[in-house]
Design a protein around this nucleic acid. Structure first.
Lengths: 241, 241
DNA sequence: AATTATTGTGTAAAATTTACACTTTAAATT
DNA sequence: AATTTAAAGTGTAAATTTTACACAATAATT
């Protein structure tokens, strides 16, 4: 009796298949958002490719053979900003044929939110620069598309989860929080309704402190209660404005 | 005067960098959802790796050097189901070090929604099988995680956009539509409120036909107005249940 | 003709969202 | 010290959306 035709491949067979296919390079690009002077910013670097000389690009690197994708993104963040322990989320993977002028490079985009006031944050490289998100026109590679996708996703996420706090200093006033949301969503919000909404969710901790050095009545300062948020996040419906 | 130290790399330099790094293989895996007998289904194939013999896996393949990611996903769908022109959306990219037992393979997951009643649909391969989504336990590789991620994303998407229609025949009754939503979201919905909601959005076309061969009062049949949806999608707030 | 199973329909209460203006406070100015 | 300035802090009513809920109509089956 003849054995039934089998579809099962050995390891060897698979390995051969992988090796014989032309390889594709894999990179990670980070869209690093910050918030400063009431503006949403993104951290960019001058392109290191001659073709894109003078253009700005996202912070990225090839993924190392022995590191995961998230890991690669964290490495880039750490290298470029000195920060670890920051918000980081995969956004989308971009793999159009012609997206890189030299090689076939598929890139996994990550969105990161950092607090630019953080004392550890040092922009180590003078090729790096914080750009206003609304003054970005063209960029190197397909990075404008990646950036646009990431910003859209941030706008969506920030309505569903209070991620925005990652962009603020630990202590912040409600005005700062509202400015942040207005900057991200690019809308004007009603102050009373905004306050009502945020107080109705239970994760602002009143610090019993107030702003200093403001030329008017100072606002109270709060911090975000991550613990309470983690617990209540599931049964919260998001922010409607 | 000495020229300032430059950060600019030539094509050559980049190419060398890419080539010298150990390469990572890239694949695409499709989570193909269907809806049949009032149950949400997913199309799986018996694993072709000896290690996972007897386990089921998603439909995937290595990405070819000259094809984009979406393109690769469409190719797989076409090969396995005979269908083109179906809903397809990238979900997430999985790149943990040990996720593939033989090689370093990073995979881009796609979610696809197909109408299993479609006349073109032929499951060509008898290694393929439609599984109830709620009876899936372990799978080959990290495919259970990929599947869970895709299902969660589907549940979320289906509340924001009426994607569900892709899973139904062209003509459907409101009961079928509700069954679909109940199957995807795994909840019971109020019939009157469900109908109200769907009629309040304007993209059901009354076909002036009714179900046949039902042993009770037949329901009216509708079809989905893709054109109207495309126009009104932007200013629609999603489905709350 | 009666039974059966499901379709089709409306309304009232509850919850959420929106629109909107005046008083309070601290710093800066006179 | 009094006045000015700029933003903080606060409540309510209307509109909208969501939820809960029950009975008459219809076609097929008996």
């Amino acid at each position: 009796m003849v054995a039934a035709k089998s579809n099962i491949k050995t390891y060897k067979a698979f390995q051969t298949e992988v090796e014989s296919s032309n390889r594709i390079a894999l990179s990670v690009d980070c869209v690093i958002f910050g918030f400063d002077e009431n503006k949403l910013k993104v951290l960019l670097i001058r392109s290191d490719l001659k073709k894109y000389e003078g253009k700005w690009s996202l912070l990225g690197d090839l993924v190392l053979p022995d590191e995961g994708l998230d890991e690669a993104a964290y490495r880039i963040l750490k290298q470029r900003t000195g920060l670890s322990d920051v918000f980081l989320e995969q956004v989308h993977t971009f793999g159009e044929i012609g997206r890189h002028p030299v090689n076939r490079v598929v890139t996994v985009a990550y969105c990161s939110l950092i607090n630019v006031q953080h004392h550890k944050l040092k922009i180590l490289d003078n090729e790096l620069h914080w750009h206003d998100v609304d003054s970005i026109s063209d960029m190197a590679f397909d990075h404008k598309i990646i950036f646009d996708t990431s910003l859209s996703q941030l706008q969506k996420r920030v309505r569903e989860h209070p991620l925005g706090f990652s962009l603020l200093p630990n202590k912040f006033s409600l005005r700062e929080l509202q400015n942040l949301y207005e900057a991200i969503l690019n809308v004007k919000l009603d102050r009373r309704n905004f306050r009502k909404k945020f107080f109705s969710m239970d994760f602002l901790i009143d610090l019993d402190e107030v702003e200093t050095d403001v030329p008017h009545r100072p606002g109270k300062l709060y911090r975000f209660d991550y613990v309470k948020y983690e617990k209540s996040a599931k049964n919260w419906n998001g922010i409607a404005f």
